Computed example of a mutant assay.
Amino acid sequence: MTRRKAMKVMAAGAVAASVTATMQPTFALAKRNIFEPVTIGNLKIKNRIFKAATSYDLSDHHGRPSQDWIDTYVEAAEGGPGMMVTDVTYVEFDDRPSHADLSIHDDSQIPAFKKAVDAIHKAGSKVCMQLGWAGSMTITGYRIKEREVWGPSKVQHPLTKVTPTKAISKEEIKHVVKTMADGALRAKKAGFDAIELHFCHNFMLSQFLTPYYNKRTDEYGGPIENRARLHFEITEAVRKAVGPDYPVLAKIHGRDYLEKNGMTIDEGLFFAKGLEKRGVTALEISGGNLVNGFDTMPWRGDLEDEPQNQTYFAADARKYSKTVKLPLILTGGNRRMEIMEKELNTNPHIVAFGLCRTLLSEPDLVNKWKEAPETHAQCVACNECIANYGQGPTVCVLN
């Protein structure tokens, strides 16, 4: 068995185990580099590296960041990224995938998050709260027999094997919109430098965009104009809640990579233009699905020995740069400086790169790159870190 096949088997095993006011950036003609400051909207960031959202499962039972969570983020912030993006933070307490996920469902959560923000700022990084709804993306089946699980339609999730209790009603959709706006305002009050709307990765809001999950026949189903309606309503409500200048990012799929019943690249471009029109400050480009196998997942494996397969959503980002004028943050397989800087100087709309598994494995990697850009990340994308996803703290076997 080749190393690539072996790593694929390991990654597949890990996934199987987990089942049981917009501002156009000014682009310089000079060569850009990772460690120069960047401004997104009115937010100044010391470099172009973001710690992308990572589910650590380290909240207390109220959904507040525990001291372990704060210590983990402080360590990563001291490692050099310009921006830290939190785990998905849920705006409805019972919607959490597990008992240890973050939640900002009411104002009583604000002081604990402010304590976390202050610690991350002291460590030298900006911090952004990612907000979302889980729906049937609940690995542990957290309290699914005690509550309603919402979704666009009653379609079983391919990874979790959870089927929504019901297709949510139009009245419940209004509740989803309100909770996202309320959560954004709480994040702002807690001192977060930005918020990010989590519109991807097979969670509930992402499911509305994807015909595989969305079988609705009302104004929230069918053509992309309808499937994106909820996200546009959320964006408008969030922008109204936080004001015209507060940075509002959105993490989206470039496309789903589904052979059928997925969101296509053209539909994704329509979606991105709609978000731009409604006041999103920047887009984080991700993608993939949990249906078609290893090579279409958001977290692909065996990347260190195959640098040509790193930074794997770059081609999609190039297409987006021709359609929207928003700054783009590119996630997905970023682990070599030379590849990222090449892409940085190929696509003028890219302003930053998101790293997830690499910084879980090696929190001080950004500082190492600053001293020695040729450094290779120790993370090999084995995906063992997600073997316990939702069932315990997320850890790296090499850390």
Score class of each variant (00 low, 15 high):
His198Ser: 14
Phe93Val: 08
Phe203Tyr: 13
Val248Ala: 07
His175Ser: 15
Ala228Cys: 08
Ser286Asn: 06
Pro247His: 01
Ser55Trp: 10
Asn202Asp: 05
Gln156Lys: 13
Ile224Phe: 08
Leu249Ser: 01
Ala21His: 07
Arg143Asn: 15
Lys342Leu: 07
Gln156Ser: 12
Ala317Glu: 03
Arg300Met: 07
Gly132Ala: 13
Trp133Val: 14
Ala134Asp: 02
Met7Gln: 06
Val238Ser: 08
Leu398Arg: 00
Arg32Glu: 10
Arg3His: 14
Ala12Gly: 12
Pro298Thr: 01
Lys5Leu: 15
Lys145Thr: 14
Trp69Leu: 13
Gly135Val: 08
Leu249Lys: 00
Lys145Tyr: 14
Val91Asn: 01
Arg239Asn: 05
Leu205Lys: 00
Met1Cys: 12
Met337Phe: 09
Glu276Thr: 00
Lys215Phe: 12
Ser125Trp: 05
Val351Gly: 05
Thr217Ala: 13
Pro37Val: 11
Glu196Val: 12
Lys170Gln: 12
Thr311Ser: 13
Ala184Val: 07
Gly191Ile: 03
Thr235Gly: 11
Lys240Ile: 05
Thr264Ile: 09
Arg186Ser: 10
Tyr73Thr: 07
Pro97Leu: 08
Met297Ala: 06
Leu290Trp: 00
Glu374Pro: 13
Asp60Tyr: 06
Ala314Cys: 03
Phe294Asn: 06
Ala387Gln: 04
His231Trp: 10
Pro211Thr: 01
Glu304Asp: 09
Phe271Leu: 11
Ile110Asp: 00
Asn47Ile: 15
Ala352Gly: 10
Thr346Tyr: 02
Phe199Cys: 09
Lys174Ala: 15
Thr217Val: 14
Asn33Arg: 11
Asp107Trp: 02
Tyr90Gly: 09
Asp60Leu: 13
Ser103Gly: 13
Arg255Asp: 11
Val280Tyr: 00
Gly254Phe: 04
Val324Trp: 04
Val38Arg: 04
Asp302Lys: 04
Lys273Trp: 10
Gly274Cys: 11
Gly41Gln: 02
Arg300Phe: 02
Cys356Glu: 03
Val397Gln: 00
Ser206Met: 08
Asp68Tyr: 09
Ile144Trp: 10
Asn334Lys: 06
Ala317Arg: 03
Val238Trp: 08
Gly333Met: 04
Asp316Asn: 04
Asp266Gln: 14
Arg143Asp: 15
Gly254Asn: 04
Gly183Pro: 12
His61Val: 14
Ser286Ala: 12
Lys46Met: 14
Ala76Tyr: 00
Glu384Pro: 08
Lys161Tyr: 08
Asn289Leu: 05
Tyr142Val: 15
Asp107Ile: 02
Ala112Arg: 01
Thr138Arg: 12
Lys46Leu: 15
Tyr312Pro: 04
Lys170Met: 14
Asp87Ala: 15
Val324Gln: 00
Ser103Pro: 14
Cys356Asn: 04
Met337Asn: 08
Glu196Gly: 12
Gln378Asp: 04
Met137His: 07
Glu276Tyr: 02
Glu259Ile: 07
Ala76Trp: 06
Ala52His: 07
Ala314Glu: 01
Pro164Arg: 07
Met83Asn: 06
Glu374Cys: 10
Cys128Ala: 08
Gly333Thr: 00
Val366His: 00
Thr165Pro: 13
Gly124Lys: 07
Ile386Val: 12
Met7Trp: 04
Ser59Cys: 12
Leu230Trp: 03
His198Arg: 13
Arg336Cys: 12
Ala181Gly: 10
Asp218Asn: 09
Leu365Lys: 00
Arg335His: 05
Glu171Ala: 13
Ala119Gln: 06
Asp101Pro: 09
Lys368Glu: 04
Asn289Tyr: 01
Pro158Glu: 02
Glu225Lys: 12
Lys370Glu: 04
Leu197Ala: 05
